[in-house]
Computed example of a mutant assay.
Amino acid sequence: MFGSAQNGAKAYAKVGMETGVIAANPHKLIVMLFEGAQIALMTALQQMKAGNIAAKGQAISKAIMIIDNGLRASLDKSVGGDIAIKLDALYEYMSNQLLNANLKNDPALVEEVQGLLEEIKGAWLAITPPEQNVQNLMSNSSTIQQNGTAAYDALAPRTSTLMKA
């Protein structure tokens, strides 16, 4: 009569992700794309080790879609100049490496792309816009633990970034 607990958890996670996407600024959306690609690659490695060829192929395909249709498509070469052109080439390289990883069942190629994505994500995080840092501080101020470090609570109320008319 009712769905399984696992289906409920998946639905809850999907709503949380969709809400995060709607509320995110462009900088945060790129971070979410990096995280999505990394999760897909971790899944691909797990499925590769388990010998589950179909699930490995799906995970690699998902990572390629995120890289090509998300990260690569978001580049504006007319504004980004040389950096955008080089990132475009690097994203194309990553997609090709993932295609080869899928065909050859080679975890080393997946791990190489994971490392490249992690480096680019780190650089992207280093240029977080100042207004986002302020928003993060404001939204995390209510979740400061006793030891003084901020904890993430997905259910905690957040300060709205919407302006009233």
Results as ranks from 00 to 15, higher is better:
T159Y: 02
A73P: 00
S139M: 09
L98I: 11
Y93A: 10
T128P: 02
Q46A: 10
S139H: 03
E92N: 13
Q47L: 01
V21N: 04
S142P: 00
G80D: 07
L109T: 08
Q6Y: 02
A73C: 04
Q135I: 13
N140L: 09
A5K: 14
N136E: 11
N7R: 14
A5N: 13
F34M: 06
N102G: 11
Y93C: 06
M138T: 13
T128I: 06
Q58P: 00
N133I: 13
M48S: 06
L103M: 10
L109E: 05
A11K: 02
G36Y: 03
K104G: 00
T19W: 01
Q47G: 05
L99Q: 12
A44M: 07
A55D: 13
A24F: 01
N100E: 12
Y12Q: 05
Y12T: 03
N133V: 14
Q38P: 06
T43H: 12
E18A: 09
K86H: 14
D82R: 00
A89E: 13
L116A: 13
A40H: 07
K121F: 03
Q145T: 04
E18G: 02
N100H: 15
P107N: 11
A59T: 06
V110W: 01
A108M: 09
S160P: 02
I66F: 05
Y152A: 11
R158Y: 00
F34C: 08
S142H: 02
K14P: 03
N133D: 09
L162G: 05
K28V: 08
K77H: 07
L45T: 12
A126V: 04
M32K: 01
T19C: 05
N100G: 07
A40P: 07
M163K: 15
W124S: 08
M48G: 01
Q38E: 10
Y91F: 13
N147L: 02
V134W: 07
G148D: 04
N25Q: 09
A54E: 15
T149S: 11
Y91H: 12
A50L: 09
I120C: 11
Y152G: 01
A11C: 03
Q132P: 13
T128S: 10
Q97P: 01
L162M: 10
L162K: 10
D82E: 13
A89V: 08
Q132I: 14
Q58G: 06
N25E: 14
L116V: 15
I120W: 12
A5S: 12
I39H: 10
A23Y: 01
T159L: 12
T128K: 12
N102V: 03
Q145D: 03
K86M: 08
R72M: 04
A40Y: 12
H27F: 08
